[in-house]
Amino acid sequence: MSSALLLQSLILGILLGGLYALLAAGLTLYFGVMRVVMIAHSAFLILAGYLAWFFTVTTGWDPLISLVITVPVFFGLGVAVQRLLMTRLKPASLTMMSVLLTFAIALVIEGMLGFTFTGVQRRIKLDYGAASIELFGAQVAVVKLVAFGLAVLALGALWLVLKKTSFGQALRATIQHKEAAELVGVDTAKVASYGFGLGLATAAVGGTALALDATIYPSLHWHWIGPLFAIIVVGGLGSIPGAAIAAMLLGITQSLLQVPLGTTWAQTVFYLALFVTLIVRPQGFFGGRLAQRF
């Protein structure tokens, strides 16, 4: 591999990793606050992608503007899903049943997308869609940079919310120790539903970023579930920084492997990492404490 190609792959890997980090952050949030495995997360991503595409097709405006609508709507949707559906599950079987319930939601979303927009592959047409700029001697598509920028912004905003607001504090307390948080007066039920909303809000941003640079179709979400789950398991379930590090590492590895192995086989790196993690260190490499045996 030539050094120019290597550099190119590395930069693409970093850009990809940033996007993965955002997409996985939401999953980690749900798990952290509720011990819920949200299979439908990637279905919501694709839904957001479709909404961005539909928005651009109908208005002719930039898809990024759709975020003004989709982010609050997804937040509300998340709160609703948590309040109306998740709380109905018995605590004893919450983890397993939430998997099935969110799986059902994913199926419904996929089906509705297929029904409304048909199975035809869609792609957002952008003025700058084909443009690329030179970065350290490597050619990088502008849309990838925009997506990465969006991911960084959203993650930064998430970090601010978690670190600087009282809600963020309550949320982190809930993730670390729910009972203790309750003892010091945190309304964990409320935190859980807002945490869910926050998770879905990241899905809105992530899905839009994804759709800038990818062809979307209703069943696309299955291709994202595996890698995203691999990321959060490798990072340690429930740990947002862990997920971000794992996302970066796996994104770069995937990108580097794509040149010699091709796209399909390069994807197996996620699963390989997943299985190695489970055999060597089931609690994840960067999270630790929390996840133990979930």
Partner: peptide
């Protein structure tokens, strides 16, 4: 895609 919705 109705069967997906129905299954879900």
């Amino acid at each position: 895609q109705f069967h997906l919705v129905a299954t879900g």
